[in-house]
Amino acid sequence: MATLAELPHVSECTVSGCSYNDHSNCHAGAVTIAGVGGDAQCATFIPLNVKGGLDTVLASVGACQRANCVHNENLSCTATAVRIGAGNDLADCLTFTPR
């Protein structure tokens, strides 16, 4: 199991309407990837005008509920980094690769 220092970072987020997005950087402490079928939704997405998150921390993937992703090992993401952006939904994990 990965330690906090080994969790993959969100290397880019192009979802400008998310409260945690600051200049394509995710400032949530961690994101959760969820969804069904071909959708790997960023479940941390919050479409508010109020900015949230931490000042200096860039998000990691804290949990991945997509057991059918090649990067998923025991519900933890093993990708080097993930990208969040528009997919089936406004905020999806673009690194998602089905098995």
Rank of each mutant, 00 (worst) to 15 (best):
V36W: 04
G17V: 12
C18N: 05
H9A: 04
N25P: 01
L90G: 00
A59Y: 13
V82H: 05
C69F: 07
N88Q: 13
V36Q: 13
Q65W: 02
A67F: 14
E73D: 14
L58D: 10
L75Y: 14
A63N: 13
D22I: 13
T3Y: 01
C64E: 02
D89L: 08
T56K: 09
V57W: 05
S11Q: 09
T44W: 05
V70I: 15
V36A: 07
S60K: 15
G52V: 06
I84V: 15
T95C: 06
Q65P: 00
L75C: 07
E6P: 01
T56F: 05
M1D: 14
E6C: 00
V15I: 13
C93G: 10
C93P: 05
A79K: 12
G87Y: 04
S11H: 03
H27V: 03
A5L: 09
A43H: 12
G38E: 12
N25E: 15
L94H: 06
V10H: 08
N49H: 04
G87R: 06
G87S: 04
A2G: 00
T44K: 05
T56R: 05
H71P: 01
F45P: 04
E73T: 14
C13H: 04
D22E: 05
L48F: 08
A91D: 03
P8C: 07
H71K: 12
S11M: 11
G52N: 08
K51V: 04
S11V: 07
A81Q: 14
S19T: 11
C18Q: 04
L54K: 07
E6I: 09
V31D: 01
L90C: 01
S60L: 02
G35T: 09
L7D: 02
V36K: 15
C93M: 03
F96D: 02
T14L: 10
V36Y: 07
L94R: 14
C93S: 09
S24Q: 13
N88S: 03
N49F: 04
A40P: 09
A30E: 13
V36R: 12
T80R: 07
G85I: 12
L58C: 09
C26V: 06
A30C: 12
G38S: 06
C42Q: 06
D89F: 11
P47D: 02
N21L: 05
A5V: 10
A67T: 15
G62Y: 09
D55K: 13
I46R: 10
S24D: 13
H9W: 10
R99E: 11
L75H: 11
Q41R: 14
S16R: 13
S19L: 01
N21I: 02
L94K: 15
L94V: 01
A28H: 10
S76C: 10
F45R: 06
A91E: 06
N88M: 00
N21A: 04
F45L: 08
D55Y: 05
